[in-house]
């Protein structure tokens, strides 16, 4: 059985980048790479060790599988969480940088991405999917 790649989005509530990272992660696991990827819950990394397997699930998965983190800003919260509890990440996607590279798309708001925002999310998702393919080739 092929090992799935973990996708961890920052999901930051306060910023547009968080909403975009979240949307992109969902597009990858639901549409682009449903059989090669699995979404992991970022806050669970720190809250691990609860009831039965709880957060340990995410931590253990990331220990044994390659993971890609999606960051909404320069704080790199997802990467830091994964590295703290599981080990090195396979790749990191910076949403803020992709946004800068595509000034033609202007997402509406963090609450509602709007048409442009969804398009941008698709672009980010494709970047992630590309990374997944790259990782596949390496293995």
């Amino acid at each position: 059985m092929k090992k799935k790649v973990g996708i961890i989005a920052c999901s930051g509530e306060k910023l547009l980048g968080g909403t975009l990272s979240r949307a992109a992660a969902r597009i990858v696991v639901k549409k682009l790479k449903p059989h090669d990827t699995i979404v992991l819950c970022q806050p669970l990394f720190a809250a691990g060790g609860l009831e039965r397997h709880g957060g340990q699930q995410e931590r253990n998965f990331a220990k044994e599988h390659p993971t890609i983190t999606i960051e909404g800003c320069e704080e790199l919260c997802s990467k830091i969480a994964v590295e703290r509890y599981s080990g090195p990440v396979a790749a990191t996607i910076r949403v803020d940088e992709i946004m800068k590279a595509h000034p033609e798309f202007k997402p509406k708001s963090r609450e509602d991405l709007g048409k442009d925002g969804l398009k941008l999310a698709e672009i980010i998702a494709e970047e992630i999917a590309k990374k997944v393919d790259e990782l596949d080739k390496q293995r």
């Binding site: 920052c10 999901s11 930051g12 509530e13 306060k14 910023l15 968080g18 970022q42 806050p43 990394f45 720190a46 704080e75 919260c77 997802s78 830091i80 969480a81 609450e111």
Partner: peptide, 19 residues
């Protein structure tokens, strides 16, 4: 934060708290 308690409520990123 946008409608019901505009002036009283605010958001913060949970990942930043985790960090």
């Amino acid at each position: 934060v946008n409608e019901l308690a505009k002036d009283k409520a605010d958001l913060e990123c949970l990942p930043l708290i985790v960090k």
